[in-house]
Each structure stands twice: as structure tokens, then as C-alpha cells.
């Protein structure tokens, strides 16, 4: 069952500065729950219209094909509490036991990023600030190219034009199994994020 989280911090998820998340402490209780050996996937965005079907379908495919105990963390940005309609929709879906819903407060977002195997972008579920925070913290980013924009992630993410649920599920499986790919995505993401910090010349 999705967990409703009552937001108390006066910070909207989408207001999180990407260069400030590194110094924020994660919510340790959530981190303890999420740091499991099973896969943990993260989706974040303004989800007032609900969780995109392609994402939900991709996660259900992943559960069926790869890891039945995988987890999906859904963070609703831009609001102190997740939309009720979204909570209701997630509660009604077949994978509801494996999904948690929270408002994207900084400490919650930090915990989710630290625990996640990847941040998944979908056309209808992405947030530029969260994507930048993932790059800064070394969290792989995968999903729909249209949701990322090349300017945001460059070559630092595993992105697909016109990503289908099957393609998304396959990407999740690949990231989960391929440590080298995760390392490449992490380092490219960091370089990408770094370019935003300074316009200095790349090292020799």
C-alpha cells in the first residue's frame, strides 16, 4: 500500500537546489527501509495527473521478469503532500505493495536518491532539479529522452526516444545487472553536473 507522507518542511520538492542537496542529511528512517538488496527505483515529478501508465507498466514488467521484491519510490514534487488522486491510483494498482509515495521534501528526496538503483524519467514524470541532483550524487538516470532533454543530461543517462514499457523494463534490468554501466553513467553524470559548476577547460 502506498505510504502517505505528511510534509512538514516548508520546502517544495521542485525548489531543491541541486548544488545544495549534497549537504542535506537524508531521512535516516526511510533510508534504512529502502537500503535493501532488492532493486529500488525512483520516479519524481509533478504527478497531479497520476503516475504515467508506461512507468507503471514497466515496473510491473520488471517485477514479473526480474525481482518480485523490487521497490518503486514515487516522489511528488511541487506540493507539500502527494496528490490524493495519485495516492488512490497507486493504491488500486496491482503492484501497490511494492510502491511508496511521498512528497519530495529534501530529506526524503535525498534518502530516495541514495537508495535508488536509478532515477527513471518518463515523458509525464520528470523534474529537472531532481535529475540534476541525481547527477550530482552519482545516481544513474534512465528513461525517456524527451523527458530529459539532451541539454540536461547530455550523454550521462541511458535514454530512449519513444521509450516503451518493455524498453524501460529492459533498461532497469540492464542497469541493475551491469556494474560497469552504472559506473559509466555515474561518472558521466558527475562530469555533466560539473560542467554547470564552472566553465573551466577540461583536464589534460
Amino acid at each position: 500500500m502506498p505510504t502517505m507522507h505528511s510534509a512538514v518542511a516548508a520546502v517544495h520538492g521542485s525548489d531543491v537546489r541541486p548544488d545544495g542537496l549534497a549537504t542535506i542529511a537524508a531521512n535516516l528512517a526511510l533510508l534504512a527501509r529502502w537500503q535493501a538488496r532488492a532493486a529500488c527505483w525512483l520516479v519524481a515529478g509533478d504527478l497531479r495527473t497520476g503516475l504515467p501508465h508506461d512507468l507503471l507498466e514497466a515496473f510491473e514488467l520488471y517485477l514479473a521478469r526480474c525481482e518480485a521484491d523490487a521497490r518503486l519510490i514515487v516522489l511528488a514534487t511541487g506540493a507539500h503532500e502527494p496528490p490524493q488522486a495519485l495516492a488512490d491510483a497507486l493504491q488500486a494498482c496491482a503492484a501497490s505493495a511494492q510502491i511508496e509515495l511521498h512528497a519530495a521534501q529534501p530529506a526524503v528526496l535525498k534518502a530516495a536518491l541514495l537508495a535508488a538503483d536509478a532515477l527513471i524519467l518518463s515523458d509525464a514524470a520528470s523534474d529537472p532539479a531532481v535529475t540534476l541532483a541525481a547527477l550530482e550524487l552519482g545516481v544513474p538516470v534512465i528513461g525517456s529522452a524527451a523527458a530529459a532533454t539532451a541539454a540536461l543530461t547530455g550523454a550521462a543517462a541511458l535514454l530512449w526516444p519513444g521509450a516503451t514499457p518493455a524498453l524501460l523494463a529492459a533498461s532497469m534490468e540492464r542497469v541493475r545487472q551491469d556494474a560497469r554501466l552504472r559506473g559509466i553513467l555515474r561518472e558521466r553524470g558527475f562530469s555533466d553536473w560539473n560542467l554547470r559548476r564552472t566553465a573551466s577547460e577540461p583536464p589534460a
Binding site: 537524508a26 533510508l31 537508495a115
Partner: peptide, 12 residues
């Protein structure tokens, strides 16, 4: 292996 902590958490 693999470590229980993801790389991002190790870096944290």
C-alpha cells in the same frame, strides 16, 4: 558483494 549500500550512499 554487492554491497548493501548503493554507490551514492557510500559516497554520502
Amino acid at each position: 558483494p554487492p554491497c548493501l549500500w548503493r554507490a551514492a550512499q557510500q559516497e554520502e
